[in-house]
Each structure stands twice: as C-alpha cells, then as structure tokens.
C-alpha cells in the first residue's frame, strides 16, 4: 500500500466514508496478521498478545511517512475492529481444523483451553456486528476490552469516559450480546457456555 493511499484512506475514513473505513480495516487486518504470523513463527509456544500486536502495528504504520493516525486513540479504534476480525478468523480456522478442514493460518498452541466454543464465537461475532449497527460505542468497547485486552482505565482514557462508565458499558454490551444469543437460539446448554 502506497503511503499516499494510506494517508488518503485515513483521511476519508475519518470523514466518515464507509468504503474507506472498510478498506482501512482491511489494511490494518493485513498488518496485524502479518505481525501475528511473524511472532508465532519465531516462538511457536507463544501466547498471542493482542496488545503487543497492536503496539507493533501502530509503530510500524506510524513509522511510514503518511501513516500517521491523528492520534493513538483513533488508531486503536480502527485497529481493534480489525483485531476483532483477525481473532475471529483465527478461531474460525481452528474450528475448521477440528472439523477436519484444511489448516491455513499459522500454528498456535493446540491446547487452547477455555476458548469460547467455536459455534458460540461465531454467534458472538454475528451479535457484535448487529450491536455495531445499533450501539457502535458499545461494540467498540467490546473490541477494546475483549479483543484487544485493554483495561477499563485505558478504555476510559481512550474514549474520554470514566472508568466506571466503561465498566458499565461493558456490562451493558454483554447483556445485549447475551440477549441476542438467547434470541437467535434456544437456551444454550450449560456446557457450551463460553468461558465457563
């Protein structure tokens, strides 16, 4: 991606241009993916740290002329969205592997205890998409907390809200997601409760 294009992309995304936003997500997704692969290839037993990935990606992009985001908060807003995509894709592929499909993405520890069940995560992804439409800020908090691993304090700082508010919003988001899950399926059996 050429520098000017990235600059342009950021600018138009900032202006609210939906197509640019999606393209920016794709770019960020690519960066994150690339980094993740590199990390995992170096140390196969590595536990993937979203924070590190984000940090590195930010550094990578910032170091390119014209790759500057207005500020870190803006970067994270986009990047965490991309991170969501990355992680969901990853888990999908693991699920696919379990079902015998071809294994594409880089190798991660085979023992991944306590992951949300594959199907569950799919549903969460779906619910999140929906939430993103109605309550974009709540979806963003999910991205920041769940997919990117920020603390409430950090989220509060990023979004300009209090820590307490961030916590409450997270609770709300969860409620809504749970609600969505409950709506689209029969009451989930206890065993498949994510994170149980």
């Amino acid at each position: 991606m050429l520098q000017e294009q990235l600059e342009q992309l950021i600018r138009s995304a900032e202006q609210g241009e939906a197509g640019s936003r999606d393209r920016l997500f794709t770019v960020l997704y690519g960066e994150l993916h690339r980094l993740a692969e590199r990390e995992l290839r170096r140390r196969p037993m590595l536990t993937l740290s979203p924070t590190t990935l984000l940090h590195e990606t930010y550094l990578n992009l910032s170091s390119r002329p014209g790759g500057m985001f207005p500020d870190r908060a803006r970067f994270l807003a986009y990047a965490c969205r991309a991170m969501r995509g990355l992680l969901i894709d990853f888990v999908r592929s693991r699920c696919a592997q379990k079902r015998g499909a071809a294994f594409e993405i880089t190798s991660l520890p085979t023992e991944v205890p306590n992951t949300p069940a594959c199907e569950e995560l799919e549903k969460i992804a779906e619910a999140l998409e929906a939430l993103g439409v109605d309550q974009p800020r709540l979806a963003q908090i999910v991205d920041l907390k769940f997919f990117c691993g920020f603390s409430f304090a950090e989220i509060g700082e990023l979004l300009g809200i209090s820590e307490r508010t961030a916590q409450r919003d997270w609770d709300k988001a969860r409620i809504l997601l749970r609600h969505h899950l409950g709506d689209t399926a029969a009451a989930p059996p206890r065993g498949s409760d994510p994170g149980a």
Partner: peptide, 22 residues
Amino acid sequence: LHAANCASGFMERSPLGAGPLV
C-alpha cells in the same frame, strides 16, 4: 442476564483463551 453473565464470566476470557486480559 447480567447476573448470568457475571456468574459464568461471560466473555471474561479472550477468544484465544491463551493470553490473559488486562
């Protein structure tokens, strides 16, 4: 639902299950 979330720790763990969360 909120109570159920808290009780089961819904989405407390990262999707990877590996890395801990802040």
